[in-house]
Amino acid sequence: MRHPLVDDVCDAYLALADARLPGLVTGMYLYGSVALGDFRPAHSDVDAVFVTARPLDAGDRGGLREVHAELAERLPRPHLDGVYITADALASDPTGTTGPHSSDGRFGDDGTFERLLVTWHTLADTGVTVRGPAVESLRIHTDRAALNAWLRDNLRGYWRHLWRTLSAGTEAARREGRHDFTPPWCVLGVTRLHYTLATGAITSKSGAGEYGMRVFDDRWAPIITESLRLRRGEDTAPGYPDLDVRHADVVAYMDMVITDADRP
């Protein structure tokens, strides 16, 4: 069962899109935290792939811009984010392509947002059908070897760069480390990639934390547990009275996971 907020957003969006642009949106498929059973109303978005009857022209784009603006006015949170694409294009590798999308609830004419092989794999493996043929019947491009290469590049690039930033010892790094957003984003983020490289499956942030508790040394249990507590919004005592100690554990954990995942 989906969270009522998710249903509210989907129903409102489809009603607006159908009224403004009848017949355009032929499919709507959810992926991400909603599909993976890890939707958190306080900070999750609703991630979707919108399948359209035709490539969007200028009139379609203008109409969708108005649809998303009105939706955001009616329902400011959660954001409805995702990509617009035709069914035929789903069968192709999205790497390096651009196109219309919605990000932070705002429509964008063009960009690479979420046009990623990992998005296609997540949709194929765990997608939820809101409108259109069952997601299992869609032709969705997947390539496990290419996905693994992308995951390793992402660990070596984005996540290693973030680790360096957080490890810098500067006051800015210290402030970032003391923010409650940082442990779940960093600890669970790198662990999700490790999970997929190790198992070939896709998991949520919470699922990644549970995986980390199973496979990594017990010394990492406190920082994983704290990251899960923050992710889930649990009203329990913090596991780290000293936020600088927590930050040091986040940095050390990230380094361990990135290094371990990069082994042949």
Rank of each mutant, 00 (worst) to 15 (best):
S206W: 04
A146P: 04
G127C: 07
W220K: 11
T129P: 09
S206T: 15
R156N: 09
W163Y: 12
R156W: 04
Y158N: 06
G177V: 04
T112P: 04
P222K: 10
L151R: 05
R192F: 06
T129M: 09
G209F: 06
A168V: 11
L188V: 10
H141N: 06
T225M: 09
S137C: 09
D125I: 05
R115C: 02
D180T: 14
Y211D: 08
S206C: 10
Y158T: 07
G127A: 12
D143E: 08
L147S: 07
P184R: 03
A201T: 14
Y195W: 11
I140T: 04
R219M: 12
L151D: 02
G207R: 11
G132K: 06
E176R: 14
F181V: 13
N148W: 05
P184L: 11
D180E: 14
R139Q: 14
V118W: 02
S137G: 13
D125Q: 15
R174P: 02
M213E: 15
G200H: 13
T119R: 00
A172N: 09
R175D: 12
H121Y: 05
H179N: 14
L138F: 09
A146L: 08
D218N: 12
A168H: 12
R131W: 07
D109H: 03
S137L: 14
A149M: 03
L197S: 10
R144I: 07
T112L: 00
F181N: 06
G169D: 11
F181K: 04
R115L: 03
D217K: 13
W185Y: 11
R164I: 04
S204V: 11
A201D: 15
L138N: 05
G108V: 00
D109T: 02
